[in-house]
Each structure stands twice: as C-alpha cells, then as structure tokens.
Design a protein around this nucleic acid. Sequence first.
DNA 1: TCAAGCATGTAAGGCGTTACATGATTTA
DNA 2: TAAATCATGTAACGCCTTACATGCTTGA
Lengths: 182, 182
Amino acid sequence: MALKHTILAFLSRHPLSGYDVAKEFAEGFGSCFWKASQQQVYAELTKLEQQGSVSYEAIPQAGRLDKKIYSITEQGQQELLNWLTQPCEPSAIREDLGVMGLAGHLVSPQVVIREIERRRQLHLKMVEHVKKLDEHFAKHLNSLELKDIYMHLIIRRGIRYQEEWVAWCDEALAAIAQAVNQ
Amino acid sequence: MALKHTILAFLSRHPLSGYDVAKEFAEGFGSCFWKASQQQVYAELTKLEQQGSVSYEAIPQAGRLDKKIYSITEQGQQELLNWLTQPCEPSAIREDLGVMGLAGHLVSPQVVIREIERRRQLHLKMVEHVKKLDEHFAKHLNSLELKDIYMHLIIRRGIRYQEEWVAWCDEALAAIAQAVNQ
DNA sequence: TCAAGCATGTAAGGCGTTACATGATTTA
DNA sequence: TAAATCATGTAACGCCTTACATGCTTGA
C-alpha cells in the first residue's frame, strides 16, 4: 500500500509535521491522488518512526503537546526508491453510484436524475479545486524542471478525472431525459 | 459501504450462486464499478443470510459441497431501496502512480516512462474488455428500456474512465519526452 | 464569544488482501 | 496428462472509518 510511500515522498521534499502531512492529503497536492485521514497519518508516522524510516525533532510549544517535525532517514529513502522502481497496478474502482446501473429501476427516474445532478456539482467544484493546485505550474509550463513536470502531470490527471466525471454526468442526464420524455 | 448493496442489487435481478456473483465482479458487469474477491463475496453472502437479507436453496452436487442459490428477501429489497434513495459520495481516489509526482526525480526518466507505457497498455486492454460488456446495449441503443439504459450508462462510465487514462498517458509521455530531449 | 485553525493523539470495528485448503468435471 | 472451470470455504493481518478526547491561538 502506498500511504507509507506517499508520506515518505512528501518528507523526501521537506521535513513536515503530522499536521502538515494531513493537510497535504486533505487539501494539498496529495488530494489529487490519495486520501488519508488525520488519524491515519499520525498512526503511520508513529509506525514509520519505530521502524526507522523517519525521525523527528520535537519542538516545545507553549502549553501544548510538542510539535514533531519529521524527516526521512537514509533507510526511508532507500525504501521509497525500491518501491518506485517496481511496477505498480491501477487502483481498484469502487463506485457506489454503480449500483444504480443494476437497481436504478427500483426507484423513480427523478431520484436517479437528482443524484447525478448532485454528482455533477460536486465534480465541478473538484475541478475548480484541483485547477488551483496547478496554477503555478500551468503559468510556467515552458520553463518547468522535470521534477515539477511530474507534479503538473499528476495534477493534470486529477483535473482530467474530475472533468471526465462532469462530462459523463452530462451524457447520462441527456440519455435519461430522452428515455423518460418519449 | 456498497459491497453489500451491490450483491443485493445483483440478486434483485436473478438468484445467483456465490460463484456467479464473484464472477460478476471479476469479469462481468460488476467489474466496471466494483472490485471484490471471491473470499469477500462468500463471507458477505454468509453474513447477509444470517441477517435475513438473502436466503438460499441448497442444491446437492455429486461428490461436492452443495451449491447454494441465493435470492434476495423482502427485507433485503427494503434495505437496497433505502440505500438507493440516499445520496452517495464519490469514491476516494487512491492511485499508487501519484507518488511519482512527488518523488519521480529520485529515479531516472526511463523508469517513469516505462511505467507510464505499461499503464497505457493495461488501460487499453481494459477499454477492450469494458466495451465488450456494452456490445449488446450499444447495438440497440434506440430501443433500450430505462433499466438497460442505466446499465449502459454505468458501462459507458467504465469505458470513459479507461479511455481517459490512455489519453492522460499520451499527454504525460509527450510532456516528459519533450522535457528530456531539450 | 464563537468558529476556524493549529496540534496531538486513542480505541473499536469493519473492510480488503493474501495465503491456505479441498476436490470433481471439462477441455486441450 | 495438465490446465481451466466449477464450487465452496477458513484464518491472519493490515488498512480505513468513525467516534472520542484535549487544549491553545487567531480572526470575525
């Protein structure tokens, strides 16, 4: 699984606190290819530290728990590298909406239409969100280092994914409308 | 989670054995929106039976364990219906390849290129596979009942998803090639 | 003064993967 | 004779979700 390696990859760029890593997943670059909760991130960092893949420096905070700034270790770098040079498989698709394909006729078309319209709105918002992550890269497309081209391409994947959903919703709404009105 | 409801939805069409349900996920219509292993299917069917959402008829087989033909119960139908009328959220994206965006510069461009080319091939094959599921529907597009339009649309979603991946691979390969050659 | 942001965790339970286990029938 | 298909499971372990828990600082 890649939660471990995604965290290592973040830390291979700069040291970060657990809070920062969790934010990357929730709103930052991580959000366009991996989802992880705050609890998962803290648990994984604790495990990685025990295994020697990361280390932390504790920074005392006035009246709070220490802030822990995590860095990747030599060993962690090696693990990340080994993982990167091995082929990876496409992720499994698990999409609740698919059940409509089998059992949509059990509810009224209006229920199906409403659900697809809702989805369309959600994915439109996601397009906006992911495009913001790409702003910097899109502006300097012709002068990006390879490192940043990789980031741009992953964000592009996120944008295309969300746009594709919007397009499918349009196709589906049109097909259902036609079937219902005739 | 929708494994339960996907199985109920399959059984709402016709009674099936565990083996048949597992096959639907592995190669059939299920494969375009949900993944579940054989073990998961058997475990879930046992649970659903204990909870009264499905029932089975045991059919003796010469020299084997009985074959169990599962049907949805009144209670199962109700559960499926309740679930269908509630809004559902987009599934989380978890894509191993995304780590390349953060840490691709740690390996040579050739490794990244090889990986994306591999992905392109895999998704091309998936396009073929999913298109076969749609053959019947695509042929009779203008005379489909709503029930079958729903199935067609879910398969269309699968086709578009896989085609979108191929298109992204092309975009990525072109961008990397340009950056490496200059 | 209330919400949002900063900052850290614990615990229970469900879902999914991997490995193991059995054995007949059909097709190449 | 070997592989694929039919047909059913058990067990261990790890990943993810949901709920709970604490407390300071900053901005509206």
